[in-house]
């Protein structure tokens, strides 16, 4: 590297520095573009995977945008959906206090559209509709009984619908099934459907054991399924002391009477004289 063996000590390269600089800039642009092309399909597939993992909720349509307002819409787009939904839940609370059922319904609609995978929103929205709103009308002294029944019934059905929508989005969530069953039991007095929903709930992951008991209780009140119910109740009784709740014992006793089970075959021990 000494001048002796390298007479021109300077770099021997005909290219001017400007040309080199421009080449480097072109290379920079090219690298960006090639990287862009390369990652496009990769990011597309990741996006698909994210959707499959339920990390990415569906798109936000124009309706959501209008209801949300510009700022919240942008926030929701920018990865703050959950936060926007949380703030909407605060808003919903105010609407509940003001007994503004129309607004409350649309707010819960919005919350669940932002975060369809948060079961709590479905559960709570349905509770507001099927219980609070319906009771508000059913117990309203100022209205005629006909109107009261009409409006009250409508909100119960809204609550039922809302839960069904929630179940479509969260089929694995037992609590929504349980709540649906409770609406059938408490609001419609439909013990057969309540029994079915409790039974489905009981099979879902994380469901507490009482779901199975509730399913059996409801079945006992479902016309025509008494034998099935008796088998279920007897099975639960046999499973362990933890199932032998007063209600279970009572239902079992009722059915044994109703189905005229012979003394010898009864599950319940004979009562003392």
């Amino acid at each position: 590297m000494s001048p002796a063996d390298n007479p021109g000590i300077f770099r021997k390269n005909g290219m001017s520095y400007r040309l080199r600089r421009n080449l480097k800039r072109a290379a920079a642009g090219l690298v960006l573009l090639v990287f862009g092309i390369g990652r496009m399909s990769w990011e597309g597939s990741m996006e698909e995977e994210w959707k499959r993992l339920q990390l990415r909720a569906g798109g936000l349509d124009l309706g959501v945008r209008e209801q949300l307002g510009q700022m919240s819409y942008l926030a929701a787009l920018g990865g703050f959906r959950s936060l926007v939904a949380s703030f909407l839940s605060v808003k919903a609370f105010n609407e509940w206090e003001n007994v503004d059922w129309v607004k409350l319904e649309s707010t819960y609609g919005l919350m669940t559209r932002l975060q369809p995978r948060v079961a709590g929103y479905w559960e709570e929205g349905a509770w507001h509709l099927a219980y609070n709103a319906s009771a508000f009308y059913l117990l309203n002294e100022e209205m005629s009984p006909g109107v009261r029944r009409h409006l009250g019934g409508r909100y119960i059905r809204k609550g039922e619908e809302f839960l069904r929508e929630g179940i479509r989005n969260n089929p694995e969530e037992y609590l929504l099934r349980q709540r649906l069953a409770e609406i059938y039991r408490n609001k419609f007095g439909d013990h057969c459907r309540a029994a079915d929903e409790f039974a489905i709930a009981a099979r879902l992951e994380g469901a507490p054991e009482y779901c199975r008991r509730f399913a059996a209780y409801e079945m006992a009140d479902c016309e025509g399924r008494e034998w099935e119910a008796y088998a279920a109740l007897a099975g639960l009784y046999g499973e362990g002391v933890r199932h032998r709740k007063p209600t279970l014992l009572a239902k079992l006793g009722e059915l044994e009477e109703k189905l005229s089970i012979p003394e010898a075959k009864r599950v319940l021990p004979e009562k003392g004289p």
Binding site: L33, M46, E47, W50, Q54, L55, R56, G79, S82, Q115
Partner: peptide, 17 residues
């Protein structure tokens, strides 16, 4: 092609849910 995709990193919503 030019802009990075930041949505890929926005998993907070899903995780909170």
């Amino acid at each position: 092609l030019i802009f990075p995709d930041f949505q890929i990193f926005n998993v907070v919503d899903g995780v909170v849910a």
